[in-house]
Design a protein around this nucleic acid. Structure first.
Lengths: 137, 137
DNA sequence: CAGAATCCAATGGGATACTG
DNA sequence: CAGTATCCCATTGGATTCTG
């Protein structure tokens, strides 16, 4: 019970320096902003089950465009989350896989996904209530 | 060790039905997309330390515009994460606070923030390496 | 197969002015 | 104080076409 509070405090201490301080240019925000694009998390989770080739990823994520797949893979590669390996065959084969860093983010992602999975009915209900114009008495 | 693997498997089972199935219209994605906007997570974490009034939030998050603060608060309220309480004084006071649902998401957010805090140097380094034009031998 | 390049529509989001 | 309303720009991202 108390250790949970301690853990939370540690998180908040890392989050902002102390009581009510503005969040400002926290380097954490840069990282979270990157994660917050439309496809990064989805791509990481798709690669979590093992290395995949380009068109395999397209099939696994049917609604991603080729442009965004390429672009998001490049960004993840740049951030050291994804490794790109080219087999110089004909036609060429390119295999994408998670680096150790990329693998490590699966854990916090997993927590978030689990939370979303557990609570989306609650959210849907809250929306329905909120969107109810008003209860005419 | 093994229980960690079991937990991961459970996450992935919730994520997609089974081996290599497309992610498609997973309700989890709708929740995660909402979280993935620029301000939601920041606002939730700012409210984590307690209820705050409108202009207090503006001061705590100096770089949010009034438009986005209002808009994000409305969305969080609609999703049942934030509660809005109006004190009909003059001038009016409005207090925002996390609901139990909103409070519950602090935990997975905390894991992500902790990960970002732990790994952003690693990411910065990876970027520097990636952006190095080429090592001229 | 694995992309690069271009065009264009939709959305996000800031600045500013006004209100109860 | 706590918003609403409008304008407008920047970014995101899809569709399409082309290449080694």
């Amino acid at each position: 019970m108390n250790s949970e509070q301690d853990q939370f405090s540690a998180i908040m201490d890392g989050w902002n320096s102390n009581a009510g301080q503005p969040v400002g240019n926290c380097p954490v925000r840069g990282v979270l902003d990157k994660i917050s694009d439309k496809w990064s998390m989805l791509l990481v989770m798709t690669l979590a089950s093992g290395p995949k080739r380009f068109n395999q990823l397209r099939r696994d994520i049917p609604d991603i465009s080729q442009k965004m797949l390429t672009q998001t893979l490049r960004e993840l590669q740049r951030d050291g989350m994804v490794s790109r390996k080219v087999y110089d065959t004909k036609p060429p084969a390119v295999e994408y896989s998670l680096t150790p860093l990329g693998h490590s983010i699966i854990v916090p992602f997993g927590h978030l996904i689990r939370w979303a999975n557990d609570n989306h009915p609650h959210i849907d209900q809250a929306r329905a209530v909120f969107d109810t114009p008003s209860d005419p008495a």
